[in-house]
């Protein structure tokens, strides 16, 4: 190459760099434009509230929720010395402990039996997923009746077999278990659908070759189904835990947190503190605790889960 043509050549390269930069900028702006609506709403309704909640938790507020006095950690000290909140925390953890394994086991069972290809299976799948279509409010009404002390189905069965009636929702010893039972019912629809989806995505050749080897049902369940399903189960467990921590509707309808705060789960507690007692400061402190719990749960889930989960 001679020197005459070398000059414009150098110039060109710089020129191209400039153009490339401009193009990248354009793509960047376009990307932001596509994401803007979501980002905007996330900022207003998720990120800002989160920060605002933390902020509020350091203050006392008046009835309108305007901050009045900065109290530092006092709200946190208050809630952690409050037996009611501690009770609420314990109940919440117990509730999660009851509902998550319960939901998963029942749903897994239903999904496994509904995964067989036989006539009319569509009908059964429909029934098993039906509770997803029932709102918390409607489901709570159904269960209010089942739990009803005098005309309720459960007590009628107890009486038929000669047992004493139980105050399912009014007896402090039973209330949390009863609410958990109804919650498991409400959750199985969704969980069943997800697990069934996971089951159906397992390559059927695996089962065929196991059949050729003469493997039995439980062997296949243990060696093929569960390992291949582990990503699904992992997801379902995570979602169920988070959902359980956020339970509100059935508490509001079934027990209103009672009896003697047995079922006063954390979200209900936050709701009452904020919108009944107008203690936005302590309510926010509780919300921060809830946020931290869920954060820790997710992190633990990911740390534990990622190692054990079998991805294809």
């Amino acid at each position: 190459m001679n020197t005459e043509s070398a000059m414009p050549f150098e110039y060109n390269q710089v020129h191209f760099e400039e153009l490339k930069k401009q193009q990248r900028k354009k793509v960047f702006l376009k990307g932001l434009l596509f994401l803007l609506p979501s980002l905007l709403l996330f900022s207003i309704f998720i990120f800002y509230p989160m920060i605002r909640t933390v902020y509020l938790s350091f203050f006392l507020t008046n009835q309108a929720g305007i901050t009045t006095v900065f109290v530092g950690m006092q709200n946190y000290i208050d809630i952690f010395t409050s037996p009611i909140f501690m009770k609420s925390l314990t109940s919440t953890f117990l509730f999660v402990l009851f509902t998550v394994p319960g939901t998963i086991i029942v749903s897994l069972f239903l999904a496994v039996i509904a995964n067989e290809k036989i006539k009319g299976i569509g009908f059964f799948r429909m029934i098993f997923s039906s509770t997803m279509g029932v709102s918390v409010a409607a489901a709570s009404v159904f269960w209010l009746f089942l739990f009803h002390p005098s005309i309720g189905f459960f007590n009628k069965i107890l009486v038929t077999f000669g047992f004493d009636k139980i105050g399912w929702l009014t007896n402090p010893e039973w209330a949390l278990a009863s609410v958990s039972l109804s919650t498991i019912w409400m959750n199985i629809g969704f969980t069943f659908l997800i697990i069934l989806g996971g089951l159906q995505s397992i390559d059927s050749h695996l089962y065929e070759s196991a059949n050729i080897d003469g493997a039995g049902f439980f062997y296949k369940l243990r060696r093929i189904t569960i390992p291949m399903l582990s990503p699904t189960l992992f997801f379902v467990v995570t979602v169920s835990i988070i959902n359980s921590f956020q339970t509100f509707g059935q508490i509001d309808m079934l027990t209103k947190g009672g009896p003697s705060n047995e079922t006063n789960l954390i979200v209900y507690s936050i709701y009452r503190e904020a919108f009944v007692n107008y203690q936005y400061g302590t309510a926010s402190a509780q919300a921060v605790i809830l946020f931290i719990i869920i954060l820790i749960m997710t992190v633990i889930q990911f740390k534990l889960g990622e190692r054990k989960v079998h991805y294809q």
Binding site: R24, V27, F28, K30, G31, F34, L35, S38, L39, F42, F45, I46, F47, Y48, P49, M50, R52, T53, L56, G65, I242, F245, Q246, F248, V267, I270, Y271, A274, Y280, A283, S284, A287, V288, L290, F291, I294, L295, T298
Partner: peptide, 28 residues
């Protein structure tokens, strides 16, 4: 669309899943 910061924004989206709506009802 491939652009700088896309992965960071994606992470931001994931993060929203970890913030329960119930924990931020008061400001909302």
């Amino acid at each position: 669309l491939k652009f700088k910061g896309r992965d960071a924004l994606f992470f931001l989206f994931i993060a929203t899943m970890m913030i329960p709506f119930e924990a931020s009802i008061i400001p909302n």
